[in-house]
Design a protein around this nucleic acid. Structure first.
Lengths: 197, 197
DNA sequence: GAAAGACTAGATCGATCGATCTAGTGGGAG
DNA sequence: CTCCCACTAGATCGATCGATCTAGTCTTTC
């Protein structure tokens, strides 16, 4: 058995735990996700969990949020690269997000929102993982806007508002079971980006 | 004892339960809020709870969300009425929200977001109460924009995006412990409203 | 092939979950 | 007074929570 395979097998259970936890946190938040459910979905046992994550559920959740954040960053990267026009690129992000949500029965959206909102002020570990994710996405959008010709002074404020609108629109979509809010957001954000050019 | 006082006393415990639940749901979501904690905060017992809400926690939560929604509607109403200019009025909503959040240590924001996100697809009762709240707020913003001169065709999309941006910016503020996202949102939404006039 | 260390299996712990239940209390109606 | 009914009090239920613990099974190393 070569080193690469060994590495993969050694971390296989750990990866399954992180992936399963990320999916569950996204759908039902932190308190709504029990360890036993995670173990069942991941096909793991308590022994493995506390071997890889000695601090238990909280440590696993923080890691799962980082994993989910990278996933969401990929979707954002794809959307932002979809057009030479930054306004059109932002609009495409909204379309991609709407599509992903619709195809998953309104479950697969922002991987941190549900968990972050309910643990604010009660778990520094999870909160800072959430904060880093949001700041990473803000940075990606800001870089794309700057590159697209938005003056640096406005790029930060605009990027932050783009992310806010996408996050909020996703909330409205998921609650109503309708992608209208994200369609509206895409259209209006394109207008806003052009107004900042 | 006259009828009015009698009515108030009769529903006193019920009201305390609803108020306490609304505050807890806003801060820590549905699964993170135990019945025993609610009873303690409200100064009530199981007997009273299941007398007023035979279907238990879920029924109480739905009622608490409706209560919180009216509270948030008042803040929105105040902001929307603060200026004859709709762009300035929207910006003031963002300021009011930022102020309320800061003054409460980042806990008192949207009363439904945390709870709604974690129960989506698992409690029709709570989800529809959340949906109604969001639609009520959208309607208020849309009416103000239309009255302020935004063409009817665009008012709905703009109002929806304003609410989305406020909700998302609040998430970013609470997670980061910084009101910057709401300041940015207020500034950018004013630009967007003017672009739609 | 013995020893060591990485990892897995799952029973079990005390605490707490939401819910149910019986036993009340107290004020108004007849 | 007596009866009734809205309401309160809180013990108790089985289930499940997150966490710990012992007892393993592999793989690698010498």
């Amino acid at each position: 058995m070569d080193d690469v395979t060994e590495e993969r097998e050694r971390s296989d259970t750990r990866t399954r735990l992180v992936v399963a936890t990320a999916a569950l946190l996204q759908r039902q938040g932190y308190e709504g996700t029990s360890i036993k459910r995670i173990l069942k979905e991941a096909g793991a046992t308590y022994g493995s969990l506390y071997h890889f994550f000695p601090h238990g559920k909280e440590e696993l959740a923080a890691e799962a949020l980082r994993f989910g954040a990278d996933d969401f960053a990929r979707l954002l990267r794809e959307g932002l690269a979809s057009s030479p026009d930054p306004a059109e690129a932002v609009a495409h992000c909204a379309r991609l997000l709407a599509e992903t949500l619709r195809d998953s029965d309104w479950t697969d959206g922002c991987p941190v929102a549900a968990t972050a909102l309910e643990i604010i002020g009660r778990s520094p570990l999870i909160q800072s993982a959430s904060d880093e994710a949001l700041k990473q996405w803000r940075g990606m959008i800001e870089a794309r806007l700057t590159e697209g010709g938005v003056p640096g002074a406005r790029a930060a404020a605009l990027a932050c508002t783009v992310l806010s609108a996408l996050e909020g629109a996703e909330l409205l979509c998921r609650v109503s079971g309708d992608d209208e809010p994200l369609r509206f957001a895409g259209e209006q954000l394109a207008v806003l980006v052009r107004a900042n050019a």
